[in-house]
Nucleic acid binder design. Structure first.
Lengths: 219, 219
DNA sequence: ATCCCGCTCCGCCGCACGGGGGAGGACCGC
DNA sequence: GCGGTCCTCCCCCGTGCGGCGGAGCGGGAT
């Protein structure tokens, strides 16, 4: 069962990293590096030209980063490569973005050569492997849970934001006033502004908007 | 580089499934089925005896299901096997539970033999593979985003639940009444019950509770 | 047959809330 | 200096909301 070699594109802004990766991967007979890129934009065009099976994509790159490049590749190409996103720290928020962008895999730079090779073979050969729709669903849920905040969030002034947060904990105007150390009339003014800017008629609607907008994420 | 064979335990309540899995896996020289179990409890004891490298765990089993068995195995054994959870439908809520329980992999029953074998080799050989802490973090976030609903959720009657959902979209009592096809007085009664059962004084507080309790997950 | 519960309504009352005004002071940029 | 924004606070008024008590009706349990 001899398969054609796995075609790989490397995208990393540091030449040394690319060289190291190429050395590791080229040592395997079934792997073949067919292109390199130093920027996100370059990665997109190189992938479009070389049509690899797998792309190793660094997150931090000048210009368009690896995440955006991943999005663009998956959006543009009809049969995109499996994209493995590479980063240094595992607890990066990049992880979520990478999965959401459609990355097939996620790899740490500190990974040893064996792990790297195995990961490449894995994503290349598997149509749907270990975490098929599961990860996708989790990432989608993450996206649903952390949507892009609406425009009105930015328009809220500092005080109005405070008031909205307190509103969204179920406090009355009087309680908010005490909590903020101002008069009730002031709170009423801020509440009115919040209602206007959020397009709500109720404080209840404003609270709903706050939650739906992810404004209350983090207490 | 000849390694010792990968020791595998199969846990599935259907004998035919176990037989089929054993047939597929035994055909590979580097795989060895060292035990079978038909229930979750049995799986725990068999794994404890046989000390396999990998356990294929069906979710639906009489008594303790695969998820609980996974939890117990990982909690009890010092060097637990890599557990691959097997189920029929990929959009099961089991997926989240499996990942949260600490399953190393997730496999669909419709997977072909090649995928199955590859998955087993994969989880067996990899200390930390493609989605190391990423999946764990996502699953943890899922757990945080979907906490166990408070007791009052169960106490709500059907109508009260409907009213709460409509409240939590920012509707007034009159609008809820129209939306439900009942009189405003009826809605007031239900609202009062909801406030009492949720321990809220406001409709606003009730809405907050609804969101915090994950009551509004899914629009 | 009885009780309990859920769903459906009614009236009355007090009040926090929201709308519509206005006003003064602090800060910033042109 | 002057306009703009933000924060602060005031009054009046209408009303949606929530608390209280009561009532009829149907179904399931005992």
């Amino acid at each position: 069962m001899t398969r054609p070699p796995i075609r790989i594109v490397l995208a990393d802004d540091e030449r040394m990293v690319r060289t190291a990766l190429r050395a590791i991967l080229s040592a395997e007979p079934d792997l073949e590096v067919v292109g390199e890129a130093a920027t996100g934009a370059e990665a997109v065009s190189v992938v479009r030209e070389a049509r690899p099976d797998v792309a190793l994509m660094d997150v931090r790159m000048p210009g368009t980063d690896g995440i955006r490049a991943t999005e663009q590749i998956l959006a543009v190409l009809p049969e995109p490569p499996r994209i493995v996103v590479v980063t240094t720290f595992e607890n990066d928020s990049y992880v979520y973005d990478a999965l959401r962008a459609g990355a097939a895999g996620f790899l740490l730079k500190r990974a040893d050569a064996d792990t790297l090779v195995r990961a490449v073979r894995l994503v290349a050969h598997s149509d749907t492997l270990l975490f098929p729709s599961a990860v996708r669903a989790l990432a989608a849920e993450h996206a649903r849970a952390n949507p892009a905040p609406p425009a009105w969030v930015a328009r809220l002034t500092g005080r109005e934001g405070e008031v909205l947060r307190l509103m969204a904990t179920g406090l009355t105007n009087a309680e908010i006033a005490r909590s903020m150390g101002v008069g009730p009339a002031t709170v009423k003014t801020h509440v009115a502004s919040v209602l206007a800017k959020t397009g709500s008629r109720d404080r209840t609607q404003a609270v709903v908007r706050a939650y739906e907008a992810g404004f209350m994420n983090g207490r």
